[in-house]
């Protein structure tokens, strides 16, 4: 079985606690439990994380939330 590499982008380097939370949650969708996290720092995200999992992008960043709010305000 190949080990999956999951890229995680965060505005600050991940702490051990954050890494554990991410691992714990990812293990619910990666049933084999064989995966490694590739970390990347992007301060423009402000807060939260962006996870590149398989062919999906799980965007939980504050930057994107703000962007959505902005779009909603401008749409009205």
């Amino acid at each position: 079985m190949d080990r999956e590499t999951i890229r995680v982008v965060s505005p600050l380097p991940l702490t051990e606690e954050q890494r554990d939370i991410i691992r714990e949650k990812l293990s619910r969708v990666v049933k084999t439990g064989l995966f490694s996290i590739e970390e990347e720092v992007d301060p423009s995200l402000i807060g939260g994380i962006v996870v590149f999992f398989r062919d999906m992008i799980i965007d939980c960043s504050v930057k994107t939330q703000l962007q959505r709010m902005k779009e909603a305000i401008l749409r009205d």
Binding site: Q18, K25, I46, G48, V62
Partner: peptide, 30 residues
């Protein structure tokens, strides 16, 4: 808001954000 949040987000808050937002995303993904 970005500047304010950048100055306000501490590692603890970041942990909270990850725990909450990532949990929501994971539920949807599941």
């Amino acid at each position: 808001i970005k500047k304010f949040l950048q100055s306000q987000i501490t590692p603890e808050i970041q942990t909270q954000i990850i725990a909450n937002m990532f949990e929501e995303a994971m539920k949807q993904l599941e």
